[in-house]
């Protein structure tokens, strides 16, 4: 990981769900309804993976902390 600036402007954060681990507890969909939705079996579908606002980032971090299966991750990737 490049140890660049701390500001989020240089980096994009995005979310990733490991579908094999996920047990459909739905915490993530509850907090991020703008990005995720439930499929017919109650599992999350990622509609948008990029976190735009600081609020979204904060919510995603909350989910990452509490996802019972550690399936939900916030990943950072350098801006191309």
């Amino acid at each position: 990981m490049s140890g660049g600036t701390r500001g989020t402007s240089r980096r994009r954060l995005r979310i990733q769900i490991d579908p094999i681990r996920c047990d459909g507890y739905g915490y993530c969909v509850e907090l991020l309804p703008e990005l995720l939705s439930f499929d017919d079996w109650g599992y999350p579908i990622v509609n948008h993976s990029e976190l735009g606002t600081a609020d979204e980032v904060a919510l995603a971090k909350r989910v990452e902390h509490l996802c019972p299966r550690l399936a939900f991750r916030v990943l950072r990737e350098a801006k191309p």
């Binding site: 507890y25 739905g26 915490y27 509850e30 907090l31 909350r62 989910v63 509490l66 019972p68």
Partner: peptide
């Protein structure tokens, strides 16, 4: 109980997880 899913309860279940913590 948190592992038991509160399907019927209106409140987001993540709140129970945060309360637990």
């Amino acid at each position: 109980l948190g592992a038991e899913r509160f399907r019927t309860i209106e409140r987001p279940r993540i709140h129970y997880a945060e309360l637990h913590r």
